[in-house]
């Protein structure tokens, strides 16, 4: 089984109708490659939450997916307002979402906590008025390769 995949996706802030398009594509692609179901689920959720975050809060952003036999890396870099208080953003229920985001059914303050719960390693850095950078690592089970 060839478990190597790498791709970058540009996401435009505010493109609410398209929200999730990239994540569904990534999930279907990795599913066809034979990624184990539990890993696939974590990758899909982390990518989807990241995509929704860019669309909801940033001007634009890039999601970079890098898969090999030992791990999946999801690198998400956006240009936008950044996060003032990261500790607060990591807490379930904290949200600064607009009415438009909430009407879509998002913005409940579960995004970053949910990405963290899907990650084996999670790093977040943010600079106010510049943007936010997420690094997510999801480990493959040892018997995949």
């Amino acid at each position: 089984m060839n478990l190597n995949y790498e791709n970058s996706f540009e996401i435009q802030g505010g493109s609410f109708l398209k929200a999730g398009e990239v994540s569904v594509f990534v999930k279907k692609t990795l599913q066809r490659m034979g990624l184990p179901n539990d890993i696939l689920r974590k990758v899909a959720i982390a990518t989807y939450e990241s995509e929704i975050n860019i669309i909801s809060y940033a001007r634009c952003g890039v999601i970079h997916i890098d898969v090999n036999a030992t791990r999946v890396l999801i690198d998400v870099q956006d240009e936008g307002p950044g996060i003032e208080d990261i500790q607060l953003a990591m807490r379930a229920g904290y949200s600064t979402a607009s009415e438009e985001i909430r009407e879509m059914g998002f913005g409940a303050g579960m995004g970053i906590p949910n990405i963290m719960s899907c990650s084996d390693d999670f790093q977040i850095t943010s600079e106010v008025n510049k943007g936010t950078h997420l690094k997510v690592m999801i480990r493959m089970p040892a018997n995949t390769n």
């Binding site: 109708l17 929200a19 999730g20 569904v24 689920r41 959720i45 989807y48 879509m104 059914g105 998002f106």
Partner: peptide, 22 residues
């Protein structure tokens, strides 16, 4: 995964969310 989702939301994101979660 494999659950049904009962909701009052009707936007395209319900379908993408369902697809992401199987």
């Amino acid at each position: 995964a494999k659950s049904i989702l009962l909701t009052g939301l009707t936007n395209p994101q319900i379908v993408r969310t369902a697809s992401i979660l199987d």
